[in-house]
């Protein structure tokens, strides 16, 4: 065990501070110290993506980031994407298009899809499949996940056009 570090994060827009060993993984800080159990732990070797969160504007696998590395970072988790009264369009579309079953991959999927649409607001199906390839799902075969993300993009684009 090594000395604990004072780690400051901005999580879902709010400043948070934790005392943690440097080796502590970001996913454990989020889940066990901050009570944000939306992101999950799946493979622990960066292959499955269920731990995906947004860190400084990038999708990262939080099982492979040390708490110490994240010191000073801005983090968004699934819990920061929508509220029960005002769901994020991706949350609505995953529901509408049956883009989830057991739900275990869903927080990582939606968080990743959110970043993908920030970078590519009007993706093709192929671009969605390539852009989501860091997130595994065992239940859906991805077909409805892809459909949900394309539908979310269409809705966001329609809203953007209407606003112009």
């Amino acid at each position: 065990m090594s000395d604990k570090m004072h780690i400051k994060l901005t999580v879902n827009g709010a400043p948070r501070e934790v005392l943690a060993e440097p080796r502590e993984l970001l996913i454990h800080v989020l889940r066990e110290r901050l009570g944000l159990t939306g992101p999950h732990i799946g493979c622990e070797t960066t292959h499955c993506g269920v731990c995906t969160v947004d860190m400084n504007g990038k999708s990262v696998k939080s099982c492979t980031v040390f708490a110490a590395q994240a010191d000073g970072a801005e983090i968004t988790t699934i819990e920061g994407l929508g509220t029960p009264d005002d769901l994020h369009v991706l949350q609505r579309m995953f529901h509408e298009h049956h883009g989830l079953q057991c739900g275990f991959c869903t927080p990582g999927m939606i968080t990743r899809a959110h970043r993908l649409l920030q970078e590519n607001p009007d993706p093709t199906e192929e671009e969605v499949r390539f852009g989501m390839a860091g997130n595994l799902c065992r239940c859906t075969g991805y077909q409805n996940i892809v459909r949900a993300i394309l539908a979310a993009a269409a809705e966001l684009n329609a809203a953007r056009e209407a606003a112009q």
Binding site: K58, K61, R112, G131
Partner: peptide, 9 residues
């Protein structure tokens, strides 16, 4: 190389 998340890091 790898996947999108890994390429960010």
């Amino acid at each position: 190389i790898a996947d999108p998340q890994v390429r960010y890091m």
